[in-house]
């Protein structure tokens, strides 16, 4: 009803949801790339294509974030909301960046996962990406008020703890194996990066919760 009075604000809202959709596309592309790599190895054609696709989505997300920031600098929203949204987007943006970083690590170091950690790594990836989905729902709840932020925060927190557990388990298995020590370190770094997705999702989730609490007077 008041959109004609708050045009910039409406634009910010549209761009934020556009950003969340792009994040979801980057996430799907990342998952497909990872699956392709696990099934067919790093040299498969599909893997290269999916890396490029993930990079494009990550880049698109960056552009949207910059567009939102530019609108904010043009004084959309009240100062406190501006600051909160800018910091929130910066925090979320580290997630697609992690997707890209993981795929580049696999590509450039030509990493292959030993069979004994494939299942656990799949589980770790699945739960980490579930955290990303929950973050998207939490951001939507912040801007639309359609869900309870506290419930989503609890779920993400639980998933993050589970991911930490899986990460430790995989690394323990890895170092107990007869894999080449140099390769062990490379894989440890990769598992750490995958685990970092849920850590970052947890940080974003806590930030959203603080923004929500701050708005109560």
């Amino acid at each position: 009803m008041l959109s004609f009075l708050f045009k910039k604000q409406s634009q910010v809202e549209i761009l934020i949801f556009d950003y969340l959709e792009t994040l979801k596309l980057a996430q799907n592309s990342f998952l497909n790339a990872l699956e392709a790599c696990l099934l067919n190895g790093v040299l498969c054609e599909n893997f290269e294509y999916l890396i490029i696709k993930t990079h494009k989505f990550e880049s698109r997300a960056d552009d949207i974030r910059e567009e939102v920031k530019a609108l904010m600098y043009e004084k959309a929203l009240i100062p406190e909301s501006r600051g909160d949204i800018m910091l929130l987007l910066d925090a979320i943006d580290l997630i697609p960046h992690l997707f890209e970083q993981i795929l580049y690590s696999i590509q450039t170091q030509k990493l292959t996962l030993p069979d004994f950690i494939v299942t656990d790594t799949r589980e770790l990836t699945k739960i980490s990406l579930e955290c990303c989905d929950l973050v998207v729902r939490e951001v939507t709840a912040l801007f639309k008020g359609n869900e309870r932020i506290r419930d989503l925060l609890t779920q993400i927190d639980g998933n993050e703890s589970h991911c930490d557990h899986l990460e430790r388990l995989i690394i323990t298995k890895l170092f107990a194996s007869a894999v080449d020590p140099f390769q062990k370190l490379q894989l440890k770094e990769l598992i750490g990066l995958i685990g970092e997705i849920s850590d970052q999702a947890d940080r974003v989730s806590k930030r959203i919760n603080i923004i929500n609490i701050k708005r109560k007077v």
Partner: peptide, 11 residues
């Protein structure tokens, strides 16, 4: 109110 609506209301 959600963030955008409360922003409009306060302004």
């Amino acid at each position: 109110l959600n963030l955008f609506v409360s922003d409009i209301v306060i302004r």
